[in-house]
Write a protein that binds this DNA or RNA. Structure first.
Lengths: 234, 234
DNA sequence: GCTTAAAACTGTCTTTTAGCAGTTTTGAAA
DNA sequence: TTTCAAAACTGCTAAAAGACAGTTTTAAGC
């Protein structure tokens, strides 16, 4: 079993609370899971069997929407929590989750998790703040979806991907996503994404080569949406 | 000062935790506030000075959006929390809040609130679950905004208002909102809301008289959006 | 019961976006 | 290197939604 003490994900809430000796008897209950590329490890609607932490990898969180359309709720990578909403309210996961590339996960069952939270209030407090931040992000996203044009939403998605995963030296994102995924994340169609990519290329704000996409001029791209959107930060 | 022990809001998280004697020294620090109709008690962007609970009344939570458009984030009434996002992440309120009619509020400063949470882990746990549910609702709303038509979003808003505030004997909602507010909540324009109201009246799904709106046929109205939206519940 | 400003409503026009039907390109596997 | 299915792309059309300019109705105060 992987050792939390040796783990490098300092943003992980478990890692942050390791100094508390009470936590030790719970982390030995942790399960390690390895997912291949494209493998789904949370099924939407299935009974919740606990919380996942991404030890290393890339994950997308999806939700089946209206007319069977897929909505990508968020992306996650090292140290982040997945499946935190199968917790509390319902007994079933409201979302699905799948690995974008080979991913290593840590899993705690709901029982272990609840016991741990009851026993380590600092962890509960951190979890509460985590939810609070997620809520912030989500409500900002509601506003974006309610008010941005498709072009703005797509640009915003690129900026999000860039903030989250960054670009490598060749100037392309450190994550490979098909156009359809950008559409499902931005809340539009594949065709619109394609059209917007090509017009952004013409304006030298974006670069792309095959599947790969990268930002060519970040400040100008930000300006495209910041003109009228002063404080959108999620 | 109003007495939490005499309060009837059983859904209030403070009320739920009154059995814990540790909480008593914090609830004496509570402030009572009375708001007139249309009075704003949280300013968007202002430094957060604590958490509010609605003791009695009706509140709308708003956020200034793109091009100065207003987005109504949610409505709240007796027992509900307001301003919980000035907590944790930022020091400023990301939202504004104002009374729809005369409203009585309970207010705890951030310092008192944090001390209370540190001292009463059960309250922190409840707060965590509260945030989790809010997150659920918010993410469902993202999906709605991404995928529903304007007509569906407006109908969905009426159903939400009905679930939350109900109708009185005369068959109209127990809350009076101008068309503009429905538009700001549903993420569309006033004109669209008006058009949709009038077509829903023709179809005998809705009734309205002046400002007042009510649902005439709830099951048929639900059917209008449930056809393709199996599990939208927020 | 008048008066009047605000809110509700209506018709028309324009823009935006989605959907469809195809063609071209890409990149992985034989 | 060739093959071929999937992904990316393009042009066209229809539908949805927003914006504008006005008219009508409402309800609150005199």
């Amino acid at each position: 079993m992987t050792d939390c003490f040796a783990c490098e994900n300092t943003n992980c809430l478990i890692k942050k609370n390791l100094k508390n000796p009470k936590i030790e008897k719970y982390i030995v209950e942790k399960h390690n899971i390895k997912c291949k590329k494209a493998q789904q490890f949370i099924m939407e609607g299935a009974p919740a069997h606990g919380l996942f932490f991404v030890r290393k990898g890339q994950v997308k969180v999806v939700k089946t929407g209206i007319y069977g359309r897929e909505q990508i709720v968020r992306f996650a990578h090292d140290g982040e929590i997945i499946g935190h909403r199968g917790f509390g309210a319902g007994k079933n996961y409201p979302i699905g989750a799948l690995a974008i590339k080979e991913t290593f996960l840590c899993n705690f069952t709901n029982e272990v998790m609840v016991k741990m939270l009851r026993d380590v209030p600092e962890l509960t407090f951190d979890m509460m703040l985590f939810y609070s931040e997620e809520l912030n992000r989500s409500e900002t996203k509601v506003r974006k979806f309610a008010q941005m044009t498709v072009r703005e939403k797509v640009i915003d998605s690129f900026l999000y991907i860039n903030r989250k995963f960054g670009q490598s030296e060749d100037g392309f994102f450190n994550i490979q996503l098909p156009r359809k995924d950008f559409a499902d994340f931005a809340g539009t169609t594949e065709e619109q994404v394609i059209r917007i990519i090509s017009s952004l290329k013409k304006e030298s704000l974006l670069k792309s080569k095959g599947k790969k996409i990268g930002i060519a001029n970040i400040s100008l791209l930000k300006k495209e949406i910041s003109e009228h959107n002063y404080f959108l930060d999620s």
